[in-house]
């Protein structure tokens, strides 16, 4: 677990965080320190605990042990300095909302009462739409937009509170290669121009290699953090997985191949089902 010193104080410190569900350990002793303005890729196979870690950072779940500090204070829910972009939202084509309505929820959607029209609010939302090149989507019906367009509106929504940290949960998993590349470029630009710390969750590290400063690799509930060249090595990942895995670098792509049948992680393949119901069963 590589450590690094920062010129500024860290924006995010995770120390000794562990998480257990029904005696099953989901996260084990996670140690992370992230500095201002970094672009971090949070990478790992399905079921590695990425979503759990994200929910802990958002204050939606309390870790079984350990502490999380964000901008010098303990983690709490609804922190306006954290912008959150969920994996995807399910919108019916006939959803009666415009792009501006959807993005605007990020500004004051959590407040009680009705929002009356006001020029300042309007301008703020338009500015956020501008930041994600979605000004032209302001009056479009959101239900009829493509996944990439909806994604940009959600990023605008997250930016409206001027967050210092932007958390994106698998923003690339439902997009085609071209839109995925656009989203990565867009997020990287926001990180550079506004000095926002970005934590982007993905199960394929390849689209992020050019933009990320460091990688958090999560497997079997354990994490390694550091530059890609240091972390993504056969010996480091084998220690995480607990069995031998091989890292193969070919033509600018990195593949991680498992030594056991159950653990094959070929990152050029996306897939896997997320089950959301609580009454999910085996046959």
């Amino acid at each position: 677990m590589t450590s690094q010193t920062f010129s500024t104080s860290p924006v995010l410190t995770v120390s000794h965080v562990g998480m257990k569900f029904l005696n099953r350990s989901v996260l084990e002793d996670i140690e992370l320190t992230i500095g201002a303005g970094e672009f971090i890729g949070l990478i790992g196979p399905n079921g590695a605990g990425k979503s759990t870690l994200l929910r802990i950072l958002l204050g939606l779940q309390k870790p079984t042990r350990g502490t999380v500090e964000i901008l010098g204070s303990p983690v709490r829910r609804g922190n306006r300095y954290i912008g959150y972009v969920p994996q995807k939202i399910h919108l019916d084509p006939a959803t009666p909302l415009s792009g501006r309505d959807l993005a605007g929820l990020g500004l004051d959607g959590h407040r009680y009462g009705i929002a009356f029209f006001n020029r300042k609010r309007h301008a703020q939302i338009d500015e956020a739409l501008e930041m994600v090149d979605a000004r032209h989507l302001a009056d479009a019906p959101v239900g009829r937009l493509s996944g990439g367009e909806q994604q940009r509106l959600l990023i605008a929504q997250a930016l409206l509170t001027h967050p210092q940290i932007l958390l994106l949960d698998e923003p690339l998993s439902n997009l085609d290669i071209k839109s995925a590349r656009e989203v990565v470029r867009l997020v990287a630009r926001i990180q550079r121009e506004h000095g926002v710390t970005v934590i982007l969750v993905a199960h394929d590290m390849n689209p992020l290699i050019d933009v990320m400063d460091r990688i958090i690799y999560l497997a079997q509930g354990r994490a390694a953090i550091g530059p890609v060249d240091v972390v993504v090595q056969s010996d480091v990942l084998s220690t995480l997985y607990g069995y031998p895995v091989e890292v193969i670098r070919t033509r600018n792509r990195i593949l991680v191949v498992g030594g056991q049948d159950s653990g094959i992680e070929d990152f050029s393949v996306t897939g896997g089902e997320h089950c959301h119901g609580t009454e999910v069963l085996s046959t």
């Binding site: 569900f21 029904l22 005696n23 099953r24 989901v26 079921g47 089950c275 119901g277 609580t278 009454e279 999910v280 069963l281 085996s282």
Partner: peptide, 10 residues
């Protein structure tokens, strides 16, 4: 709720 169900749901 049994553990195997949970494991699958995750």
């Amino acid at each position: 709720q049994g553990a195997p169900t949970r494991a699958l749901a995750d």
